[in-house]
Structure formats: C-alpha cells, structure tokens
Design a protein around this nucleic acid. Sequence first.
DNA 1: GACCAGATTGTCT
DNA 2: GACAATCTGGTCA
Length: 218
Amino acid sequence: MSLGADASTTAEEEARRTLGNPLPRDFYDRPVTRVARDLIGRMLVHDTREGRVAGVIVEVEGYRGEADPASHAFRGRTRRNAVMFGEPGHAYVYFTYGMHHCLNLVTGREGVASAVLLRAAEPRIGIEIMRRRRGVSVLERLARGPGCLAQAFGLDLTRNGLDVTEPPLWVSDRRPERFAGRIGTSSRVGIRVATERPWRFFVRESPFVSGPRGGLRR
DNA sequence: GACCAGATTGTCT
DNA sequence: GACAATCTGGTCA
C-alpha cells in the first residue's frame, strides 16, 4: 500500500537534504550507454509553478543516433529531433501516440545525436503534485513508464531543448541510492528494430520499473 | 498476471 | 496517409 502521510513527509525532508547540485555538462559528454548506466540511482528534479518534484531514476534506455535504427535520429536531422544533434546536457522531449510525452537527455559530442530515454523513477519529492497530475494515487505507478514519468514530472514540449545542467530541470550529482549489484540490462522496450541491443538499464526487482523487471516480484 | 484492442495527434514520407 | 521510444481498461485464467 501507499505510505502514510507522516512517513512520506519524513522521506521528503530527507530527500531535500540530500539533493546536491546539477551534474556538469562533462557527465553527458560521454558514450550514451555509459551515461545511461550512471544515471541509475540519481535524482531527477523539476521545479515547476506548482512546486518541486523529484524522484530517483530507476530505468533508462540508450539511443545511439544515426547508427541505431531504433533512434529518432536514424534518418538524419529533422525539426523534431534537432535537439538530439546539439550540445550534450539538454532535454529532448517528444510527443507520441497522440497523447504521451517522453523525456530524453542528450549525450555524446555535438552532432552525434545520442540520447538517454528516462523510463521510470521512484517518486521522492512533490508526491502529492504527481498524484494530482496523474490522477493516480498508488506510489509505484506515478512514474512507471516514459509517458507516466513525463506526466508526473509536468514535462511537455515547452521543456524541449532545456539545459539540464541548471534549474529548473536537472539531475543531481549525488546518488541517494547506489543499487550496487542490482542494475540489470535488457533489450529496449516498445521498439520493432534493433531489439537485440541491450541498452536498457534498470534496477532489478524494483516495483517502480516498467515492463520486464528481471527478477522476482510479487 | 497475461494478453489485447482502442485512444489520439504530431511528424515525416 | 501511415505510423509512433505508450498507457489504460477490459477480458480471461
């Protein structure tokens, strides 16, 4: 079941104390799979008009630009994917299926067009804001899946291109959870090509992860 | 829990 | 005009 009011308030206060600072651009200027794995366990933070929301990243996928048939950048630069071809450390937000937004963080050298799709997070701060946005109360379901994560964090096309090395949208340089030995890899979810590449990284057995969780669960 | 169909619209060919 | 880096609710087991 969900946490009681007291427990969640205490957890939020603890999370606020351990937030740290935004990751520098150097962090993103590396091969996409390395960045993807290093993002697991860090806090994603978004300061919005309704307040601050933040959560621990527990599931991501790497998309390797023009060499990756599953990437939006595979067929070259278009108006939609232009941000992916730019400087690392920016947000690439796209709209899909007529109703969902998804958040990526641009990695690698400028011109390489690789990015990490953030697929799931464990809510830590602003939980009531997320519940309101999602219309769902179960903690585990607030940011499970890329579309849900974007909705819970209040992300839409107005955030496309934002620099994530500074507020309002950023990732913390601290790792409140290291998940040592619990990071699993698998093929990516929801794609029809290049399905053999193991570029999805997630916390094994976490109830906050979408799709196959790679381990016992119940 | 697993499987399936329907929703809904921006983007590209 | 076709499709999409998805989600939800329904049905069946």
